[in-house]
Design a protein around this nucleic acid. Structure first.
Lengths: 130, 130
DNA sequence: ACAATAGGGGAAAAATTTATCCCTATGCAA
DNA sequence: TTGCATAGGGATAAATTTTTCCCCTATTGT
């Protein structure tokens, strides 16, 4: 989150949760941390499609938003562990609800998404009274 | 959603729901439609910070993902109404969970977010005198 | 004739987010 | 000695998303 030209909306609960959860990998980071995968290298292996850099950045944002805590052990090679804060733990059930909906509708969603990707000519809009 | 250079992940439920709900205004669009605000101009008034263009685009994506249905009445001036599909209705409780968490933690989130912003923006040191 | 209305869409610019590349440091194993 | 694992960061490029600007439809009312 850099200097913004476009101001944030923080009007309602949806804006607020959006602000802390929006980010390509954040939800997954929270999820994997809640599953006990706490070290950066572990998280990287769990989320191989993300670059190391972005994971660091998003972890730092999660930390700034007090959803995760970071513990640095002063050893060499470095050792770091992330854990959920008490506050962070309260968001896990919310994430679970998201994931459940996705899982329950897995096949359908997969089809719809892939289909939408390939459609350029668009759907036939339903026209009333023609 | 144009041609992508970076492939989608559609591995788990979280990926899938992310794919259909990701978009700055989509969740709000679904929410307001579920509240009975169905016409584009109404939605625009409800979400004045979004450009008309993006709302159209995101509505079209929601339509392609079968979360909303669009009815075009062949009258002049044009009349259009969006409504949730049966499938779309199943995602409303999920959105409600998000919103509730945000509302329950409203004050805290607001502080955390504004605070994090000023960290990365670099706090202007208060200059005494000058 | 012309504005107002209600809805759309193309092109390009701006904003934002992610990815890529290269660098730091230490200790251990081959 | 080289390579690997650990963690992190700066600079820059690329990808993606959103905004801005301008144009279009067709009818009704002034």
């Amino acid at each position: 989150m850099k200097d913004r030209k476009i101001p944030l909306n923080l009007n309602c609960g949806l804006d607020l949760i959006g602000e802390v959860l929006y980010g390509k990998w954040k939800i997954r980071l929270l999820w994997f941390i809640s599953q006990g995968h706490q070290r950066p290298s572990e998280l990287q292996r769990k989320i191989p499609d993300a670059s190391r850099r972005v994971l660091n950045i998003q972890l730092k944002e999660l930390e700034e938003h007090d959803l995760v805590a970071k513990k640095i052990y002063p050893v060499v090679p470095p050792k770091v562990e992330y854990s959920l804060t008490a506050f962070g733990q309260t968001v896990i059930p919310v994430i679970a609800v998201l994931g459940n909906w996705g899982n329950e509708n897995e096949e359908r969603l997969r089809k719809l998404i892939l289909n939408a990707q390939s459609i350029t000519d668009g759907l036939e809009d339903e026209v009333i009274g023609r």
